[in-house]
Design a protein around this nucleic acid. Structure first.
Lengths: 190, 190
DNA sequence: GCTGCGGGAGACAGATCGGTCTTCCCCCTT
DNA sequence: AAGGGGGAAGACCGATCTGTCTCCCGCAGC
């Protein structure tokens, strides 16, 4: 209620922002509910009023991650290219900047999927969020008139995910390597 | 001691085999020391005599994973190809079989790295084990006379890791997609 | 002014965590 | 036969986990 209050004043929003920072950097199991409570300055009962269980909080975190990280990345790539092909390749330019940031925190969807497993409800949600990313790539592939847009998107996604893991290992040039292979893949699908 | 006793009779070996099965399937944090003890039929003091801390047990698990999984995969690939290029491409044939197994358990080095983070001692050990895999690829690239073997191995590794994540998501054809891109990469490095 | 409710603070519960310690027993060596 | 060490069983410790509960305050609507 009352839209003139800054969103961060709402306890639910403070909780979600705190959880975002903690979960995206340290994972799910390594962050306890108590820490989220302490750092968001909220009562425990308040957190459990808005999120009935930690799992619900994690699902809300993944939703927000899609709203900010996924959408943000795609919009940044769209701004950097005029054609669909340029926009596709610009994804790895965005990745290149991202991999060099000191607060690089990898891909939460991959992290959560591997941490919780594909059978866990949270892992299944991560799979859906990864599918959404692939859907965006597929849309750009169609826009570019490439053949087999679904297969193209799946191969493209392999490059995205592999480069993220390599960046986590410390290879800051992973985005450029992936982009070079991405160009070959585009040629193959023309 | 006494080499005529089956290795599984040794408590240390039983612990390590049990830990291997649990850690590789469910990760590190999700598996407690108590469960390793219960399923290996060993006393708690015995585990802590052989492995001073859980971290030491995890490091031993990663070592064994390299001895069995990494070496096993490379040897299987070597058997499937006559030339170095064929052996490189055969890696993804081995992956293809692996991705279709019902007990597919992804790559423990990636899992542990993402779960514990690159700063954790266990995460750093995972990075070293991943470097060893890349070293093997680099060796085959040199044997094949490809240019820039190190850059080739890093790009190749992106395909390997990306396809493993895709397989975890459920894409059983990830290995074939990666292999198709791998062929393009080889052409680029001839 | 009164009431109701959202929220803050924190005690509490029950389970589990990694890790230590004691007790007993069995088997090997001398 | 005596001794010693490794191993099994499990109590125990302090910390931490998710989740529930109580108590109190401050504010908004009637």
């Amino acid at each position: 209620m009352i839209a003139d209050r800054p969103p961060s004043a709402h306890p639910r929003e403070r909780i979600l922002q705190t959880a975002y920072g903690l979960f995206s950097r340290r994972g799910i199991r390594a962050v306890g509910v108590d820490e989220v409570i302490a750092r968001s300055g909220v009562a425990k009962a308040t957190l459990y009023r808005h999120f009935p269980s930690k799992q619900d909080l994690v699902l809300a975190f993944l939703e927000r991650r899609e709203q900010t990280w996924t959408i943000g990345m795609v919009e940044a790539a769209r701004r950097r290219g005029d054609t669909a092909v340029e926009q596709l390749l610009a994804i790895f330019d965005v990745f290149d900047d991202w991999f060099r940031r000191d607060d690089f925190d990898a891909c939460s969807f991959i992290n959560v999927l591997l941490e919780m497993g594909p059978d866990d409800p949270v892992g299944q949600a991560s799979i859906r969020h990864l599918e959404n990313i692939r859907g965006i790539v597929r849309g750009l592939a169609k826009e570019a008139g490439l053949r087999d847009p679904d297969g193209f998107a799946r191969s493209w996604h392999i490059l995205m995910k592999g480069s993220i893991i390599s960046a986590t290992e410390g290879d800051c040039d992973a985005a450029r390597r992936a982009q070079a292979m991405a160009k070959l893949l585009i040629e193959q699908h023309r």
